[in-house]
Amino acid sequence: MFSLLGGLRRRQAGSKDVARERLRVVLMHDRAGANPELLEQVRDALVQSLSPLVDMDRRGIQVDLRRQGQSLALVASIPVRGFKRGAGGRG
């Protein structure tokens, strides 16, 4: 019920808030110099560094930039099948 009201109220506020929000996200990407190839490289680096420790579904990995307050967060979603045995003992 609340969420419905909130939705209505937001629509009444007009499209400028949408514009502002989209702009913020776009600019964070721009300012961070992020592009699809770069995110691809980040993904590969994550896979490489995590694969001795974690058994993961490589096709399901998603890497993206999101806004968190005034800063930019790198968010990686990595489906984990399990942890590799003996990996934890080395450190």
Partner: peptide, 9 residues
């Protein structure tokens, strides 16, 4: 009307 970003935005 809220359909254009204002100066402060």
């Amino acid at each position: 009307r809220g359909d254009m970003m204002d100066i402060n935005d």
